[in-house]
Amino acid sequence: MSDKPDKFIDDSGLRLDGRRVDEIRPMKIDIGVLSRADGSCYLEWGKNKVLAAVYGPRTLHPRRKQIPDAALIRYRYNMASFSVEDRIRPGPSRRSVEISKVSAEAFEPVVLTKFYPNTVIDIFTEIIQADAGTRTAAINAASIALADAGVPMKGLVSACAVGKVDGQLVLDLNKDEDNFGAADLPVAMTQDGEITLIQMDGNLTQEEFKEAIEMVRVGCMEILEIQKRALYTKFGDDPSFDLTEEDLSDIQSDEQLIDEDADNPVNEDDEGLNEPGDIDPDEKKINGEEDLDGESDEQ
């Protein structure tokens, strides 16, 4: 992995893995894969392989950690020692503890913890195979696992990264782009586009940053559609799904179709039938500038 590619984006505008700059990697989602967990999800995103399990709400021990009027969200992000090319030391590291903390906070605004005083909702995410963007993949999987566990939430959380290579912004970095790129900006957001996690590595100008947020917003909405599709089709090709789709389009009356995404080969499965780029123009406004500034110092 030590050789840096000469060029990350070729003359026709395609990246090393053949994607366009605003294209995410294919994602595959399996729900309810662990029998002992209350909710679980296995997610593949490009070469990333992530397993998420949710237990709870359940009694929290030690008792001094209990919150009298809410549930505690405990999140564990862990990379398997074999998940990367050079074996990593098993167990918590500085990096995984940090990611666990910010990821737990990414779910706090959406999970309705007030219904379960003095309890804990445990979320475990294991990175089985890593290829850049594992924290975002873990959040996407955890979001589905929480829904599968029947935990009440205001909505799903979707996460995606954006970065800079060869002086150009690219969505959903892969390993090479992450290692040799100039910036990496993972973002998690709710369906309303409210950012619940943002971190940054490297440098971006203010203009680039704003543009990057817009790109990642579109990326997260695509991922949200994939997550929704996975949940709707958990019980097989449910006939009610067609109805759901119609209803959805009724609800989002002002939706704007992004043309480039219409032929998006993002999804291998029937998810590909979906138009992943549907977003509401109202959602495009950045409604979290202060949040961004407040949290972006975590490098």
């Binding site: 959406v110 009440p152 205001k154 909505g155 799903l156 929704k228 949940l231 449910d238 009610s240 799904f241």
Partner: peptide, 12 residues
């Protein structure tokens, strides 16, 4: 007809 499946955050 089957029942409609809904997910968290869906407008009802």
């Amino acid at each position: 007809m089957d029942r409609k499946i809904v997910i968290p955050g869906e407008l009802l």
